[in-house]
Nucleic acid binder design. Structure first.
Length: 1100
RNA sequence: GGGCGUGUAGCUCAGUUGGUUAGAGCGCUGCCCUGAUAAGGCAGAGGUCGGAGGUUCAAGUCCUCCCACGCCCA
């Protein structure tokens, strides 16, 4: 980074490792060189058919911009960056447009709070135009923060060329989509039972219901709806075909005027009883009767008959209240209402086992009513006030009418029992009033007829993980219900249905702006916005009904309909001719990714609309991520502050660390993950630092040596086994990365990367580091070139391969390795514009990899022996004996002799086949091969195998088979286990035994001490901040054995050579002043109880 | 209430078609190595594999039920 440095060398690593700072620098570099822009514009051009590259279609799900991004966005955001980045490196042009979900309840609720205007009536009074203007102004309030955060995480996505669901072009395509469905006959008007806040006069969404007041159940301690006291009324419904009653129970007497049927469970047994006191004959479920009697609400009874519920079905009863008697019979005289019907949902947990049905006021009731063809009776509007159809109750609020209704029924002798009950009940989140459930008119898309096609197209989708597609999503599709896609709201895409005010069946569905202008006789181009305030006033005369005026229906679309239309609407399909072909060719899109919670959300709506419109799936590959939980396993909660601010985490550890941490978690397999700040910190140490260290090593020595890469470096084929080994491992690594990325399986990327870094740092560089130390003219120059070229190739390839995962650090490495050194050509100024590495199968050598594994295993065994015997590695030993019956292992160990001796600091290697005298043989049955064959005999045979003695085992090994318990055991059926005998310094593993000769000769001991001295000097060099190539003058003050070592000419040369000392002065210490601590200058060390004083001076 | 997941060491997670003594990383303890390393190596402590039944010669793994947690839907 000093300006005097020539550009063709590897830059010195920064003194401090500061990943966040490094990332900021890379962001700046990307901006200065327009790197991101070049990549994104390539994708955008492809969408218009103006790129020579093949295109890869990625569709981004739009988030609501009403809140700030959190980990639930950053995790899918990382996935959405890795895959397109990889595909771009594979030569595809990838369009990556950011999207904003602008409509819907989140923003409407915010604006309601801001304005203090709540519910339909208030908003209409306030003015839809002003209300929507406030939504428009507020919905993008955090887009800058989003952009900043998303960019800071390294995600490349096009914000300039973004899409918004409130854009007129987007909304027009939504109209087009709807019109297509309308033409296909997939749209119908129907009812849906919805919770209504009578105080607001507005239906509420599930989300709003969940926002309502909560409290704990006093018994179960579970959180639930706020509790309320309601009437508990059991009424008698007089049968018309017998002098008897059906008893039914309700907690909502206000729905009784609308009663149209009574439901029984077809398979439950009911009883007919006579009440001893009154002689009344009644039907109900016997267990429930016993409950009433136990509570003293009903007296003694006499059982008359028993029958299953299905035998009661169809029996007529007299209306409890007279208001809707006209629905008793149909025009053809058949029984219509006021009869017993069957319903599977009826339970015997409460009430009488016979359930009052008011189809307009309950989801279950509504379903039964639809099935039975019952009329729709709803004597009230959204405010819950009875209308004139219910006589004396007219004008009363539903809940207030309870008392009057009960009183009237009592007076008419129709009440069996009247009590009160406290139970959880949903309340309005805004006004705290109890909600009323009622059937409201709305618009549906027919999904049920599409089920078979939905399931079939789902089979073509590649789900990661698979179970989400086959399980959760597949089940949902197979049971898909018609989709209520209208909302009684204000800020959304209006339903493009105009209906005649004279004849409600006279309707027009408008599929484009131009068509509306034409119908309304407006100038082309005069409609510039499609929100309600601009569209609702547009009317036109009916073509069918003379004198009728066509007016838009009031509803807007469910915002999921809009996000499901995104593949078409983001490109203004089919209106924008330049992108028509792209849209049609890229359905299904190649790739999408979102959280598990989108299964019934975006994934579903995309799939339903693509199936309905084009008879295709909407996407080909999808990665589903799990939820990010706080470290305590709970949901992340702003209120609880149980998670760190993402911006702080990035500032402290870097975005690469966060990305690698997230993508290395179970969350990429759709499992929930617990976010831990420590996990991010560990990721820096485990993932980024190893690569940085490796670069640091290369740069340090290359600079000292004046080595720099040339265009030949990357193709260089070294001959040394160590080089060929790491290059082979590199091919394996690239292969793993490609396989995983091609399969959209991201969970093994980081582990594979970690493995190659480990091999690089802890074997390749560690074993090969002396190759880089040789000064000019020393040793084999071509070997040194091999070493540099190999290390450079490895770092370069790793950098390319890991770039999609850690884009910042990979870019930093690339800049150092390729750009600063002048290797990168025109247009090659960013790693992200380069091609993803190919596997060079010719450089893979699996036999060599196995050999190195064998050597490393022997090293580990040797280390274990040294540990156990307390033999420091710095102290040389005379011999190591490796015994193995496997010729492959013996050959591998011989080949790796140098590494083995070097690592273990041993002088001589002996390899032998015979391990007799070193190990004891014992045997175990191989359950895997024998289990299936032997079955119940397995236990006896296993015992016989375990009892085999050394002689029997040797015989088995020779013959390859043995006869036991009448069974012939062949090769592999008996597993021979070797254990070292007695006290010797030996370790055994499968197929190999290692023994160390622990005897220390004087010569070995002196050499060990010399190495101790070297170690102290090296530490001192480092502490003094000397460069690895600096020469020093060295002065040692010591006495006794250390003085003898330092005075030995051979050892002194060794010390000088290792420490780059040009001069070594040994000062005796006859007075013992250093032992006495009288000397405090320089450094003092203890070695084997003797004191050493070291003085180091840089040789000028 | 239903669907789909999850539950294995203090923490984060592996654990193949059932197979012997259940593994790794982090953290902890001890020792070692370091002429790039903020790393690394060796060892130790730490487990009723959520619980209970069952199938099997053999169950963390298969079956049934239950418990807890999560998402979605009622």
């Amino acid at each position: 980074m000093t300006s005097s440095e020539p550009l063709s060398t590897l830059q010195a690593p920064p003194a401090q490792f500061d990943l966040p700072g490094l990332e900021e620098g890379i962001l700046q570099l990307w901006a200065e060189r327009d790197v991101e822009g070049r990549s994104l514009r390539e994708g955008a051009a492809a969408a218009r058919g103006r790129s020579d590259r093949p295109s890869f279609a990625f569709n981004d799900g739009p988030p609501f911009a009403t809140g700030l991004p959190h980990y639930g966005h950053l995790l899918p955001g990382t996935i959405k960056d890795i895959v397109p980045r990889y595909q771009a490196m594979c030569g595809f042009a990838v369009e990556r447009r950011f999207g904003w979900d602008c409509h819907g309840l989140p923003i409407e609720s915010l604006v309601e709070s801001d304005l203090g205007v709540h519910g339909q009536a208030e908003i209409e009074a306030y003015g839809i135009d002003r209300f929507n203007a406030a939504c428009r102004a507020g919905v993008l309030r955090f887009t800058k923060e989003w952009e900043t955060m998303v960019r800071r995480t390294g995600r490349w996505v096009d914000f300039e060329n973004d899409y918004k669901t409130m854009d007129p072009s987007f909304m027009e395509t939504v109209w087009w989509v709807f019109r297509r469905l309308w033409d296909e006959g997939l749209i119908y008007e129907g009812f849906r039972v919805q919770p209504v806040s009578p105080a607001l006069g507005t239906p509420l969404s599930n989300f709003e219901v969940a926002q309502g007041p909560q409290e704990k159940d006093p018994v179960t301690r579970k959180e639930g709806h706020k509790r309320i006291a309601d009437p508990s009324l059991t009424a008698r419904f007089r049968l018309e075909d017998e002098d008897a009653s059906l008893w039914a129970w309700t907690t909502t007497p206000w729905t009784l005027p609308s009663n149209l049927a009574l439901a029984v469970h077809p398979d439950v047994t009911y009883v007919k009883v006579r009440l001893v006191d009154t002689g009344e004959i009644a039907y109900l479920e016997p267990g429930r009767l016993a409950d009433y009697q136990a509570r003293g609400r009903v007296g003694a009874t006499e059982e008359l008959a028993r029958m299953p519920g299905r035998e009661l079905v169809g029996r007529p009863y007299a209306p409890l209240l007279p208001f809707f008697e006209r629905y008793r019979e149909r025009e053809d005289g058949s029984r219509w209402s006021f009869k017993v019907v069957a319903a599977e949902y009826v339970t015997v947990d409460s009430g009488t086992g016979i359930v009052h049905q008011a189809p307009a006021f309950g989801e279950d009731d509504y379903q039964v009513g639809q099935r039975e063809g019952l009329p729709m009776v709803r004597p009230m509007g959204l405010t819950g006030v009875f209308d004139d159809s219910v006589g004396g109750f007219a004008g009363m609020f539903a809940k207030d009418a309870d008392k009057a209704i009960v009183a009237r029924l009592k007076a008419e002798g129709k009440v069996v029992d009247h009590d009160s009950i406290v139970h959880p009940y949903p309340h309005c989140y805004r006004t705290d009033s109890p909600l009323l459930y009622m059937a409201l008119s709305t618009w549906f898309m027919k999904v049920e007829p599409l089920r078979e096609r939905l399931v079939r197209h789902n089979e073509a989708i590649h789900w990661v993980p698979e179970h989400v597609g086959t399980g959760r999503f597949g089940n949902w599709l197979a049971a898909a219900r018609d989709w209520n896609l209208a909302r009684s709201r204000f800020w959304g895409t209006p339903l493009p249905i105009w209906r005649c005010d004279e004849d409600p069946s006279d309707m027009v569905c408008v599929g484009s702006i131009a068509r509306l202008e034409q119908l309304a006789g407006m100038e082309p181009g005069s409609i510039t916005d499609l929100h309600r305030e601009n569209i609702d006033p547009i009317t036109f005369p009916s073509a069918k009904t003379p004198g009728g005026t066509m007016r838009r229906v009031p509803e807007v679309f469910d915002c999921w309909f809009e996000s499901g239309s995104m593949p078409y609407a983001q490109s203004h399909y089919p209106f924008d001719q330049s992108k028509r072909q792209y849209v049609e060719e890229h359905l299904p899109a190649d790739f999408i990714a979102e959280g598990l919670d989108q299964t019934r959300g975006w994934f579903y709506t995309l799939h339903v609309l693509a199936t309905a419109l084009f008879d295709r799936p909407a996407f080909e590959h999808v990665i589903v991520n799990g939820l990010v939980l706080a470290e305590d396993g709970k949901k992340m909660s702003k209120r609880l502050k149980n998670y760190p601010d993402p911006a702080d985490v990035i500032r402290q550890y870097g975005a690469d660390a966060l990305r690698a941490y997230l993508v290395n978690s179970a969350a990429v397999r759709a499992e929930p993950m617990r976010f831990s700040e420590r996990g991010v910190r560990d990721t820096v140490r485990k993932i980024v630092l190893p690569l940085w260290n490796a670069y640091n090593f290369l740069a340090t020595y290359a600079r000292a040596d004046g080595w720099s890469p040339s265009s030949q470096t990357l193709g260089h084929r070294p001959s040394a086994a160590l080089d060929r080994w790491i290059l082979s491992r590199l091919q394996a690594f690239v292969g793993q990365m490609r396989t995983e990325l091609d399969a959209y399986a991201l969970s093994n990327l980081v582990p594979s990367f970690y493995e190659i870094c480990d091999d690089l740092n802890n074997w390749y560089i560690r074993r090969g580091r002396r190759r880089y130390w040789r000064g000019k003219g020393e040793g084999d120059a071509s070997d040194k070139d091999d070493a540099y070229a190999t290390l450079f190739q490895v770092l370069s390839t790793i950098t390319h391969a890991i770039a999609p995962v850690i884009p910042f650090f990979a870019e930093w490495m690339y800049q150092r390795l390729h750009v600063d050194t002048g290797l990168a050509g025109e247009g090659e100024d960013s790693v992200h514009l380069m091609r993803y590495p190919q596997v060079d199968a010719g450089r893979r050598d699996e036999a060599l990899e196995r050999d190195v594994s064998a050597v490393r295993q022997v090293v580990n065994l040797g280390m274990a022996i040294r540990e156990r015997e307390k033999l420091a590695v710095r102290r040389p030993l005379a011999t190591i004996t490796v015994a193995s019956p496997d010729p492959e292992v013996r050959r591998a160990v011989e080949t790796g002799r140098e590494d083995l001796l070097g690592e273990l600091n041993v002088k001589e290697l002996r390899v032998q086949e015979d391990d007799r005298g070193l190990v004891e043989l014992s045997a175990k049955a191989n359950f895997k091969t024998l289990g299936k064959r032997l079955g119940k005999k397995m236990k006896a045979v296993a015992a016989a195998v375990a009892a085999m003695d050394a002689a029997a085992l040797t015989a088995y090994l020779k013959a390859g088979s043995v006869e036991l318990e009448g069974e012939t055991l062949g090769e592999g059926d008996v597993l021979v286990v070797r254990e070292t005998i007695g006290e010797q310094a030996a370790e055994a593993a499968e197929g190999v035994t290692v023994v160390l000769d622990t005897a220390q000769s004087d010569a070995l001991r002196r050499e060990g001490l010399a190495r101790e001295i070297v170690n102290r000097v090296q530490n001192l060099r480092k502490n003094k901040g000397l460069e690895v190539s600096d020469r020093i003058e060295l002065r040692l003050t010591c006495h006794g054995e250390l003085a003898a070592v330092a005075g030995d000419p051979e050892l002194a040369e060794m010390i000088k050579g290792e420490t780059l000392a040009t001069a070594l002065t040994v000062v005796g210490d006859p007075a013992g002043v250093i032992d006495a601590g009288l000397v405090d200058e320089d450094e003092r060390f203890e070695i084997d109880g003797e004191t050493l004083r070291v003085a180091v001076a840089k040789d000028a």
